[in-house]
Each structure stands twice: as structure tokens, then as C-alpha cells.
């Protein structure tokens, strides 16, 4: 089962002839993902390392039956790449690109309302269903098939949670990096809902950070609907106010979006809050025993 991606996923890469696009297409293929081709305008008809290249997403979809795409297109053009994939009817769009202007993402967000596509990211590491399918840039070998679902705004903290749950023998169903931008596709609550409905997922790790109110919204949902054990971690308690901490969305504005308010909301929803990123796995293992 797992969520979002599985053995039936047929992936294309937008920006496959770029260095990062090709490298990660190869890594995804090595992991077992069915990478059926890629898109780079004006390079259609060629192949790179065995991947057929198409001029447009519509053409790639028609020729390969692709149902998912990962986007490595540079930031100024990435929003249009997302819209092109949605117009072509691609079910799952994973935008890895960092640095897309917020106004472009607002445009994307409102355009996607009338489409059936699901967007993950941008500025995210992607999605991995352990042992089956990987879309994005996460290191494959740290994943072990198992029972924990992970949702995170941060790439490297996703790896940290994956690594720890693998080491403790819990393993993962699907790990989803939703990205660090203020306007993005799937949010914490969307992924939590999917993981809650997934029978293979027995426990959930939620990783958030300062800025916005995604975690508070997820906490409200967890309180109402989630019976599975949930461990939460929020990064940025020691970050100064008003400073953007690397991620475009990681900023405490006035008194809103603090680590404390997020931790309080999660605790109030019955979530076990890990005080440091080092104890995410341990807390999950403890919560599973209860």
C-alpha cells in the first residue's frame, strides 16, 4: 500500500538533460523507480543514458504513459514547468527546484485548484516509498521497508528521521518531504490524512520548523482523527526572530510561527514531541510500544 507512489509509478524528469536532473534520474532508477523518460524543450528525440527525451510533458505522457514527474527546471521557469505537467494530466508532480518566487507559486496554487494533479514541493527532497519507489534526491540506502510514515518540511531532517527509524528496526512506509517554501503543494495535514488512512502505516513522524501555521493545522486534525502514535519535532527554537533561516518559509514574523507555539499545539493534540532531532526515532519506538 504505502502512499502516493508505488510499483505502478511511471516517472519522467523535467530538466533531465541538466546535471542534477540526470544524476537523480539515474539514482531513482537504481533504487527501482520506473523512470520512463524526461523532458527538455528542443532536445526531443534524443536519449540520455537510455532515457528517451521529449520536447513536452504532453508528448512524454502520450509516449510513455507517465503518471508522475519530478522537476529540476531552474527557478525562473519552474512554475511554468509545474503548470505544463498539470495541463498534461500528470497525477503527481514533485518539484525539487529551490528559489521559485512566491508570486509564481500563488499562480500555480490557484491554477491547480481546477486540476486533478497533486503537487509536492517546491524546494523539497521528494518522496520515497521504502524499498519500492523513490522520486527526488533522498539517499536511497538509508530507507528500510517498515511501518512508519514521515512528513517533513526539511530534506536533511527527513533523512535523519528515516535513518533513525531504520536503525531501530521500525522502517518506513513512505517518507514525504513537503518542502521549505511558504506557498507549496501538499501540506502536513494532507500527508497526515493519507498516512492515517494507510493500513500499512502504524506510526507517524511529523517534522516541522518555524514559520507559518502548517503544523498547528496538522495538530488540530491529529487531535480529531488520528489514533496512530505520532511523534513531532520542530526545528528552530534557537533561531532569532525576523531572520529567514535558509528556507524561504522559515521565519518567525512578529510573534507568529514560533517553535514553542507549534510544540504546544502538537502536545495538546496528544503528539509526543521530541526535544531534539536526535531522539525522533527513539521517541517513535517508545510510542509504538504503548
Amino acid at each position: 500500500m504505502a502512499i502516493l507512489i508505488d510499483a505502478n509509478t511511471r516517472l519522467i524528469t523535467q530538466g533531465i538533460t541538466g546535471k542534477a536532473g540526470l544524476f537523480h534520474s539515474q539514482k531513482c532508477r537504481d533504487y527501482g523507480t520506473n523512470v520512463v523518460g524526461g523532458v527538455t524543450p528542443k532536445k526531443g528525440g534524443t536519449t540520455v543514458d537510455g532515457f528517451p527525451v521529449f520536447n513536452s510533458v504532453a508528448e512524454a505522457r502520450k509516449e510513455t504513459g507517465a503518471n508522475a514527474t519530478m522537476i529540476f527546471v531552474p527557478a525562473p521557469y519552474a512554475a511554468n514547468a509545474i503548470l505544463e505537467a498539470a495541463d498534461a494530466g500528470i497525477e503527481l508532480i514533485v518539484a525539487i527546484t529551490e528559489g521559485i518566487p512566491v508570486v509564481d507559486m500563488l499562480k500555480v496554487h490557484h491554477a491547480l485548484k481546477s486540476k486533478s494533479s497533486i503537487l509536492i514541493g517546491p524546494n523539497c527532497p521528494g518522496v520515497t516509498t521504502a524499498g519500492v519507489c523513490k522520486i527526488g534526491i533522498a539517499p536511497g540506502p538509508i530507507h528500510k521497508p517498515g511501518k512508519i510514515g514521515i512528513v517533513s518540511r526539511s530534506g536533511t531532517l527527513t533523512y535523519e528521521a528515516v535513518h533513525q527509524t531504520s536503525q531501530l528496526g521500525l522502517g518506513q512506509t513512505t517518507a514525504v518531504g513537503i518542502g521549505g517554501d511558504p506557498v507549496h503543494g501538499l501540506s502536513h495535514v494532507d500527508v497526515i490524512r493519507m498516512l492515517n488512512d494507510d493500513p500499512e502505516t502504524e506510526g507517524i513522524v511529523l517534522i516541522g520548523e518555524i514559520g507559518g501555521s502548517d503544523e498547528e493545522i496538522a495538530a488540530a486534525y491529529i487531535k480529531e482523527h488520528v489514533k496512530k502514535p505520532v511523534v513531532g519535532f520542530i526545528a528552530g527554537a534557537s533561531a532569532p526572530k525576523g531572520k529567514r533561516m535558509g528556507h524561504a518559509g522559515a521565519i518567525v514574523d512578529g510573534n507568529a510561527g514560533t517553535a514553542q507555539s507549534k510544540k504546544d499545539a502538537l502536545r495538546a493534540a496528544g503528539v509526543t514531541v521530541a526535544e531534539t532531532a536526535a531522539e525522533i526515532g527513539r521517541k517513535m519506538a517508545e510510542a509504538m510500544k504503548r
Partner: peptide
Amino acid sequence: NGAGLAMATMDIIAH
């Protein structure tokens, strides 16, 4: 490496 892990590293030092 990574903004989230960088913040979490600051946090754990403070911890």
C-alpha cells in the same frame, strides 16, 4: 547541510 538540520543542530547545542 540543509536548513532544517542546521536549525536542529543549533537547537540541540542549546539543549
